[in-house]
């Protein structure tokens, strides 16, 4: 299974990539991952890949070969959608983060991103920031989305929860667990 993750610096993407790897590893799969984190903490684009299988060589995923795209921000979903194979799935957080060009009004932010997603893939869209804030913090967007992702992967929920409980800060554990569950449950019936 090939998963691409994309988002904006500061959204916790690197931690998410490492948690997905850990989950795959404990479930007995071979895996490799990658994060491209150049200037990520400063609002730049950041993306990663996770490859899971019996034997994995390169961590890199070719265009048109990804099964899943976990987009933590809509524009970053559009940027990577060409990497999905036909019938692949985009899971996208609809909460927008304006890039410089939109802030400076050089070009409008593509609010119609749902219409711009490919027609030959499945799109699962949620305002995950709103869900997270409802739970009590804006910082768990990544974990709520991991809950959504877990629906598409044949790995026991306990493995996911075990990894989350080891990797997130103790003080935020409960909110993260609630977030993961919410993500997992929320996904039903919300497909576009």
């Amino acid at each position: 299974m090939n998963i691409i993750l994309s988002g904006v610096g500061g959204q916790g993407l690197v931690l998410t990539t490492s948690m997905i790897c850990e989950v795959a590893f404990r479930a007995g799969y071979d895996f490799k991952s990658n994060d491209v984190v150049g200037l990520s903490q400063r609002g730049g684009k950041v993306w990663g890949s996770v490859k899971i299988g019996e034997k994995v060589y390169s961590p890199n995923i070719e265009k048109g070969k990804a099964d899943l795209l976990l987009a933590l921000e809509p524009l970053e979903g559009l940027r990577w959608q060409d990497y999905l194979k036909k019938d692949g799935t985009i899971i996208v957080n609809t909460s927008e983060v304006y890039p410089v060009f939109a802030i400076a009004e050089q070009a409008p932010y593509p609010h119609d991103f749902l219409d711009q997603f490919r027609k030959d893939v499945h799109v699962v869209a949620e305002d995950v920031l709103k869900i997270s804030q409802g739970i009590g913090t804006s910082k768990i967007v990544n974990v709520v989305m991991m809950g959504m992702l877990a629906r598409y992967m044949d790995i026991p929920l306990d493995t996911w929860k075990e990894v989350i409980s080891e990797k997130v800060p103790e003080a935020f554990l409960e909110m993260n667990m609630t977030g993961f569950d919410r993500g997992y449950e929320n996904i039903i019936g919300d497909s576009y």
Binding site: G9, G44, G64, R79, V100, Q116
Partner: peptide, 15 residues
């Protein structure tokens, strides 16, 4: 592979 149109860039910026 389907090629989508150009997507607006995202330059890094001061926090």
């Amino acid at each position: 592979a389907q090629e989508s149109g150009e997507v607006m860039g995202r330059l890094p910026m001061f926090c």
